[in-house]
Design a protein around this nucleic acid. Structure first.
Lengths: 210, 210, 210, 210
DNA sequence: GATGAATGAGCCTTCATTCAT
DNA sequence: TATGAATGAAGGCTCATTCAT
């Protein structure tokens, strides 16, 4: 509950969140003190507490910021393209974003949120949404692929969607740790999974059989 | 420099680590106070600090504990089995372990370590080892599979190994968050990836081509 | 790096130092806890640590305070007076100050600093300055006395200056312990030493100006 | 109250005190932990506490040790020598002792006791005795000197005795701090004071006047 | 007697948060 | 609204002391 009217100064809020994100990415939530954020934002304690009631609220606001970014990445699906191609496109955008400084920083904070989800109900809810959104988007794509016959009818779309999300979560982890795992390599790995989704060789028209 | 001779009472060290792990799994490292661990272990501050110089050292000891567990899981490979079967076996053991309370607790702490790796050089080193060990084990299996002709010669074993590890890291995350993602479902996802590794249909004897 | 701008509220700094000095005089540095100082100053821990980074720094600040007092005492020398008279004046001021509650308290803390000098390089440096300042001031007076012929040319001014300082350090000790050694008695003792400085009886020449 | 019969093992007590003195000389009482003494003595906590009930008691035992040393130094007076010569002898012994490592160490601890006297009634009593003993010894010598006519009858022996003690206390301080103040210089300073004690030139038989 | 692991009160210090200006 | 000095609960850690072996 900010003590200040929200519309008054979204810019100020953003300035604070930007500073907070930088600090959180560097040191994690609990090793970042409000003073660190004060220093980074070049604002005062009172000012920050005018916009965010507690540190916890600041963490949650950071979590919400992430949704925006992720939603944008998923928006590549225009429902007219080939589902597999769409998957490839989403994966590509995601991995390219992960190469940028900004994207990496966001994921770094994301990892902190992942860990925090164990403790905080609110953050847990955010993380849950952060998983469900891509899972259902991908589930939809896979189902469409099955209908079109470009994806094997044998697989369970929901399960594979979760599997794909899991895979990319792992990519994020390794990237955040600075492991030598480039976007191209990750895509190569993803391709293998896609290959596993292909319809059975003998059945040329799988969609019809269903 | 422990105040207490290192050989004395490994049992006490374990008692402390056990208590610490319970607390860390529940609240994360930085939200767990030494007093929490004191309460959980039913020991005193002085006793704990006789065995571990700092809280940081306690965190690192927890990290090393994990290695033992993980090493045991990877030990399923006896070099005589079919590589694919071995991969399935390892995956199975891993996912079964993840169903147990103990295994889940360990992974919960593992997630804290993953987040901590961003901040602490020592923890980062541990996490790195924790990734490299399975990656190289799996890389070896895949290479053997390629030689035997049961795995496509086209894939890069190192990359696929990383991809597999990434996938299971994601499984861990979702499981730790309490997502409805059962072992059987995860295995199903893994099978799809395995299918993607199969040799090309036309080429019946891929190993010869190498 | 004070958390609080250095120029802000020197009064607050003084309030803290005043409280600290009272506590230190009563119990010594290491038997005085920060809580004691908090109670005495009627401030909070955070406030104190906003002005002094550590307890050690507080001790050093107390040490510097002493210099001011001592420098004022030495300032009695206006270079025109008879050196011996000046010495008497300085001694008198010093001993009178030692009779006041304030002066006694300062010397009590001074004794703590003397003991601390063995351990702390910084305090040692302060104490060293605290000795050298009066030693060189007195050395100068003695040299002037020798030039004027009121002091024997046989004595080594530097050595006698140190001896005089030693004597007054001893006076401080005894006074601080509550020994029955009044200012007048101390002055009497000092007079004996001064008498020992007189030029040799036979040599009337240098003293003729007197 | 040692839990162990005192006669059983004075050697053990001494071993502990020796270690304690080394530590105290180095770091002062309150910066020396029992663990430091344990390490230095190569004994165990239980053993030390078998011989000394508290750390405080250890400090007091150290204080008593000093008396022995000081008493030995004062014992130079055999009542037959010339008082002035005796004073010179005592001063000489004292200053020579202060040049030895052992003597310096003892004085270093002595300084800690001087500071401690402000806080502890028991230590204060010890220090008081430590002042009174030489003061009365010297007072006696001075009186004898006055009787013999080698010392001015005008001076108050008690006051001068205190003054002499003060002077040497100051010498100790400067020596303990590592000031460049050699024994010979200190003796030179002392000689000036002695000169101040000489009977008035005109009055050849001052003792009779009293 | 000696050992040394265990105890727990207490220490110094930090930091989220408040509030007068 | 913004500032930043002040608050005080809580945190990590130490250390004098005890006691079962």
């Amino acid at each position: 509950m900010p003590k200040i009217k929200p519309e008054t100064s979204l810019a100020r809020r953003d300035q604070i969140l930007e500073a907070a994100e930088i600090c959180f990415a560097r040191q994690g939530f609990h090793q970042t003190s409000i003073r660190d954020i004060i220093r980074q934002s070049e604002l005062s304690a009172g000012c920050i507490y005018g916009h965010f009631a507690t540190k916890e609220e600041l963490i949650q606001a950071i979590g919400e910021r992430r949704h925006t970014r992720d939603a944008a990445l998923l928006a590549s699906d225009d429902n007219t393209m080939d589902p597999i191609a769409t998957l490839r496109a989403i994966a590509g955008h995601f991995l390219i974003d992960l190469q940028t400084n900004d994207g990496l920083r966001t994921r770094r904070v994301g990892l902190q949120l992942w860990a925090e989800a164990v403790r905080s109900k609110e953050v847990h809810a955010q993380v849950t949404v952060g998983v469900h959104a891509p899972v259902s988007a991908i589930t939809g794509l896979l189902q469409r692929g099955q209908h079109l016959g470009s994806i094997s009818g044998r697989i369970d779309p929901a399960i594979i969607a979760r599997t794909i999300v899991a895979m990319f979560q792992g990519f994020v982890l390794q990237r955040v740790w600075g492991e030598p795992f480039e976007a191209s390599a990750a895509l190569e790995g993803f391709e293998v999974l896609l290959r596993g989704l292909e319809p059975e060789s003998g059945t040329k028209t799988p969609a019809t059989s269903r």
